[in-house]
Amino acid sequence: MNKKDLYLTLFRSTFFLSMFTFGGGYVIVPLMEKKFVNELGWIDEDEMLNLIAIGQSAPGPIAVNTSILIGYRMAGFSGAMVTVLGTILPPLGIMTGLAYIYLALRDNALVNNVLLGMQAGVAAIIVNVVINMALRIIKQKKIVPVLVMIAALIAGIGFQVNILWLLFVSALIGLIMTLIDLKNKHDKGESK
């Protein structure tokens, strides 16, 4: 395949996935996997799982991160630029349009009522997300993550501690735990 076709397919695939997928990263990533692993056969299953793991280890939207990784894997830096554009152009266009419609319609009584109803729906969605994420932490059955979660909750809601500090301290705890873990594994390896 020549370079132009490669870029075109990368752009078209990410553009259409981003354009027509509702529900964010956890919905779009499996679809990306299907497209690039099963349909195009460009990336094998194991490597795709690694790319997804890297995408989740970086900050930012998971859909954006995964698309950058696919582009990078296929065509280096320029490939990554093509796929990131493909992923952000649809929401950029749609939201720009919506921002103007919103300004024009926000004061309309019916629109206002619809949005007021949706507001309760959004609150339910966020609470549901938090329940799911908290359960995932609790189910690991490890004491440190649960303590970090409770401490961050108290610090964040009770004392309005800056987010930067909370992230920094928890990252430090994660680093220490990982180093202890690696050292334990290393010691075990030596004693054998």
Partner: peptide
């Protein structure tokens, strides 16, 4: 992994 529980709280 360490940051994740704090993110849930945030």
């Amino acid at each position: 992994q360490g940051v994740r529980p704090a993110v849930v709280a945030l």
